[in-house]
Design a protein around this nucleic acid. Structure first.
Lengths: 352, 352
DNA sequence: TTTGGCACTCCCGCTACAAGAGTGCTGATT
DNA sequence: AATCAGCACTCTTGTAGCGGGAGTGCCAAA
């Protein structure tokens, strides 16, 4: 438990809890009188003021000005979500809606979009889902097509139906027939393995082939090496409902809104952030400045990693103002992650 | 010439011109005193006030309130851009920057992104480029891969290196070998033709093959028919620099901004609008409500279609507030369209 | 330790007022 | 007939003042 839970007695925590809840629902600084009525403890406003002074000393709450109520600080929110939160399980209607929408019937790309849309609609904030990581994708098929200038268009299919393509430059000019042969060769020996496994095998085979000096195979493997070079298989995410964020007063400032949206389009920062979330499994929360990214200063990010076959492959979540209904958002994110993972499970989809 | 140019004398037009120019550069309603100094005609403010009253009667300018200067209306802007505008050719530095960035060295997808980015950076507004239309694309290669449940993953390549994929459902279950054969058949007879031509040929051949009852070919052509069904080859565009629009006071209203961005993400409305622009060749301008789309009410759209081999294949442009520097934006858009068209010209890229 | 009381601070909305900018109109000038 | 100076009028903008309300901090009593 954090340092604060030891320093503070039960009563102070109870008051902090009601304060945060009240602030989240109203958006107004909450004063001692309201708090006195709202909490079940029978305390006078005066007593509560004393407690508030203590909480302020600890940096858990903050007064916008002398004569306003108190507002939770980032630490206050943090203590709240870590120790005081009572999550509200989602009702059966919402649950069945989620289950219905996330049943395994579309391809991965669609599923990600659907999950993102669901999160955005459910929370009225922005939903984000990363595309599954490459480690678990399974290589299925490759094709080489000649372009001009020693360039070759590589098309490869992973998993069930995901198509990737890139252009590689070859040292020498290959005829269409040679390319066809190379593709056949690669398809015949690597199909079915994971991309990572293929990548490793390719490196190993390249050395072997070099010794055996079989030019055709060597060419094929050389091209495969380029094709599966992971550097330009960039991580990516699908973001939906950004515009929902425009309504929040926390983002009323034009510059703040602009830098947030710039970060969305820039992508790299968000990817890094989501990457951190993926490491911790289960629900992960960044409140305000905790993320370390200026653009997210007044936002919170609630994420959960999602897994296929017990392996974490991606992360999804919700972006909104720090003042969000965590007790509802957290279960939304949690369940969506579980359902998405289940829906993407290849075992669930019938074999070829 | 429009009705107004006949009704109005030279002087009034001259004044309208300076008014619009002044308003565009300052963003403030412009009054008679400023106008008197700004215009070369030696007129007293009083005289100008008379002229302004006339222009207001004609609906070309408008007073925000009794004692403010005048602001151009949509009709005012229209008259300005149609008849009064003196375009500023871009300087050699800008021109060479454009030419350098848009030289034919990347694939189509990249080029579109680059053009969009250039427009956004140059104008500090939002740049948009539609992806080239399918009519002129040239079919190159097709591949069928079996999925579960009679579903087939179709991958086809057009032009130099554009890869498309979709999933079709087949009436019966095909073996991988059969699919391979079908692909070979289609590749052998349709490669090199335009997609439209292929689409037509496929329909014709399907009828012929049916009579000849060659089952293999019939299957192949049936699948090709599904693959090239144009219904789900949706038009699309690349939009860059949306966030630039957040700075403009015209879009300060949160709801207005939201509905604009919603339209961007929705895409269909914007596509329809851009489609209209494509019909008129050369530069096309929608000012404010002229577009007919609520979300664009306070925006202007300056577009130009771009052509490859003398055939219009797409449209690009700039989205910004009605109060934009048309005299600079128009040449930007114009030149970018020409350069993009040239860069995409297949003749410019060496043959295979 | 809790509580009522009280003075104090600060925000917010309202009003008033003066300055500034620009207009419309009128009547004189050319 | 066109132009223009002058003037009264309107409307915005900024500033200042004022009262009410909300909430605090502190103190002294229970």
């Amino acid at each position: 438990m954090g340092k604060h839970t030891q320093l503070l007695n039960e009563r102070s925590l109870q008051l902090l809890k009601t304060l945060v809840e009240r602030y989240i629902s109203d958006g107004q600084p909450v004063g001692s009188r309201v708090l006195s009525k709202d909490s079940d403890l029978n305390l006078s406003p005066a007593t509560i003021r004393n407690v508030m002074a203590d909480l302020e000393d600890l940096g858990l709450v903050h007064s916008p000005h002398t004569s306003a109520g108190r507002v939770p600080t980032v630490s206050g929110y943090r203590l709240f979500v870590d120790n005081l939160l009572t999550v509200k399980p989602l009702n059966t209607q919402e649950l069945s809606h989620l289950e219905g929408s996330l049943s395994a019937q579309h391809d991965t790309g669609h599923m990600i979009g659907i999950a993102s849309r669901l999160l955005a609609d459910l929370t009225q904030m922005a939903g984000v889902v990363t595309v599954p990581r490459r480690e678990i994708v399974c290589f299925r098929h490759i094709e080489f097509l000649p372009l001009s200038h020693n360039r070759v268009l590589v098309i490869f299919v992973t998993n069930e139906q995901e198509v990737h393509n890139k252009i590689i430059h070859t040292a020498k000019l290959f005829s269409p027939a040679e390319l066809q042969q190379a593709a056949n060769y690669i398809n015949s020996i690597y199909t079915g393995r994971s991309l990572n496994a293929v990548r490793e095998a390719v490196i190993k085979d390249w050395q072997d082939d070099r010794e055996r000096v079989n030019q055709g195979m060597l060419d094929a493997v050389t091209m495969a090496q380029q094709a599966f070079n992971q550097d330009d298989l960039k991580d990516d995410y699908v973001l939906v409902g950004e515009t929902n964020l425009m309504g929040f007063s926390e983002l009323a400032d034009r510059d703040r809104l602009k830098s947030l949206f710039d970060a969305f389009y820039q992508k790299q920062g968000v990817i890094d952030l989501l990457d951190q979330c993926m490491k911790a499994d289960g629900v992960q929360i960044f409140i305000g400045e905790e993320s370390g990214y200026q653009a997210f200063d007044h936002c919170s990010l609630v994420t959960s990693s999602y897994s296929v076959s017990d392996e974490v492959v991606g992360v999804l979540g919700v972006i909104g103002p720090t003042r969000m209904a965590y007790e509802k958002i957290i279960p939304y994110v949690d369940i969506t992650a579980k359902l998405l993972g289940a829906a993407l499970n290849p075992k669930a989809t019938p074999p070829l």
